[in-house]
Structure formats: C-alpha cells, structure tokens
C-alpha cells in the first residue's frame, strides 16, 4: 500500500475524492459539537459557564498529540522507504499540529484566568503542551534551515522520531515535577468528572477536529505537490 501511494498522481486522485467528505464531516460535527457545547450541555457545578471552554481546549490538546504521532509515523515512512508522499504529509502535518497546540495553549490560558485568576499556571498538562509546541517549532525550523530541501526533510524526520520517543519521558517528568510543586488548593484541569451530557459535544468536537485536520492536510499536500512541480519546471528552465 505504501508503494501504491508513493506515486503522487494516485495520491492526488485519492484525496480529490476524500477532500469533500472531510469538508462535510468537519462542518457538520463542529457545528453540532459547538451547538451542544454552548447551548445543550449543563454548566459545571464548580466552574459554571467557563467549563464550556473545555470543548474547544481538550480536543485541541488531543489533536496536538495525535498530529505529533502522525508526524513521527509519516517521517519514519519517509525516512525508511524514501517515500515522497509520506515526506509531504509530514511536512504539511507540522504546521497544522502546531496550530492545534497553540489553540490548546491559548484556550488553556483563557480558561485559567477565571479558574485560577491568572493567565498562566504551571499546570502539568499545560506545561507538557508548551514543550510539545517547542518540539513542533524545532521541527519546522529545522525543515527550512537548509538550502537543499531534501536535507531539511531528512534531518527533520530524524528529529521528529527522536521527539516522539521523548514525549512520554517529558510527560512523565513534568507530571513528577508538578506533583512536587503543586499547591493542593489549585483545581486541576482534568478536574470535573465527565458527565454524559458533556461527553457528546466533547466527542463531536474531537471527530470534527480530526476531520478538519484531514481536510487541511489534503489542501496542504496538494499545494506542496504543485509547488514541487513548479520547482521542477524552474530547474528545467535553468538547465535550458
């Protein structure tokens, strides 16, 4: 199957069919999810209305993780089989993942203000997401740090694999660090036990975010493949 999709034309044909599906799923699930989140689900007994932030924040944090694993997997495929499409998928995943990570950080910070009274708290989860954000930035900077694009692709692929091995270690150490330093009075972010009426919008949003990821991924990969074609034409032009 890997070899089958190593051919960009086949891949393009496939995504041209999948892209409208992803778009429809995104719009429907995020629309329904937001409706449930904002109007149908009950306010939390402890956090009242601010709990609605959770439906934007928690799936974004999930997607941050999901995208990084996807990034590392496609990097591994690109590295081992010199798979051109996998490389482009990895390259296109990174900025999307970084955006989800940033969304998780920004909403976490907004959520923190009413809950803790400050914009930023060194909560274990937020800290891990912050470090993940740096891993994404490192990947993207390294990818673009070389004059020769293939060099950057391979170096960044190795970095993402090293990173994905490190993510659980970082998570574990940050959790350890947090339990040592956390004052007992602070409400933890995973605090509220999830009630079924909260689960529906949460899952809808998670599905919607995933579909959104694929939708953007399809658009980005198509753009990258077109950019490659332009580059090839320019090189041919230079050679006369």
């Amino acid at each position: 199957m890997f070899n089958y999709f190593a051919n960009p034309t086949r891949y393009l044909r496939l995504i041209s069919k999948l892209q409208p599906i992803a778009m429809v799923v995104t719009i429907l699930t995020i629309g329904a999810g937001l409706y449930y989140a904002l109007f149908k689900s009950p306010p939390d007994y402890q956090q009242s209305e601010t709990v609605r932030m959770m439906y934007v924040h928690v799936p974004a944090a999930w997607m941050a993780m999901f995208c990084y694993v996807g990034l590392a997997c496609s990097s591994a495929v690109a590295l081992i089989w010199r798979h051109m499409v996998a490389d482009i998928v990895a390259k296109s995943t990174a900025p999307i993942g970084a955006c989800f990570t940033f969304l998780a950080l920004a909403t976490g910070s907004l959520w923190g203000k009413p809950m803790w009274g400050t914009w930023w708290v060194w909560d274990a989860r937020l800290t891990s997401v912050l470090i993940l954000f740096f891993l994404y930035l490192g990947y993207m900077v390294l990818y673009n740090a070389f004059d020769e694009p293939t060099r950057g692709a391979r170096a960044a692929a190795i970095l993402s694999i090293v990173g994905v091995i490190n993510v659980p270690i970082i998570k574990f150490s940050v959790d350890w660090w947090n339990t040592l330093h956390q004052p007992a009075s602070v409400v933890k972010m995973d605090g509220p036990a999830v009630h079924p009426s909260m689960l529906t919008p949460l899952l809808l949003m998670a599905v919607g975010y995933t579909a959104l990821y694929f939708w953007i991924l399809f658009i980005r990969t198509r753009a990258e493949l077109n950019a490659n074609k332009v580059r090839a034409l320019r090189i041919r032009q230079a050679e006369g």
Partner: peptide, 26 residues
C-alpha cells in the same frame, strides 16, 4: 542534525533544550 544548516547555533538550542527537560527536572 544541524550540520550544514543556516544559523546553526540558535537552531541547535531550539532542537535540544526541550529534550534536556527530563534531565533537568530529575
């Protein structure tokens, strides 16, 4: 990883400082 990259010094810190965190914490 940074061999042959532009502005390798700053780049290096961005790549490896996040990976140093577990060692720092413990």
């Amino acid at each position: 990883l940074i061999l042959g990259a532009r502005r390798s010094g700053v780049l290096l810190s961005l790549l490896i400082l996040p990976l140093f965190i577990p060692t720092l914490i413990f």
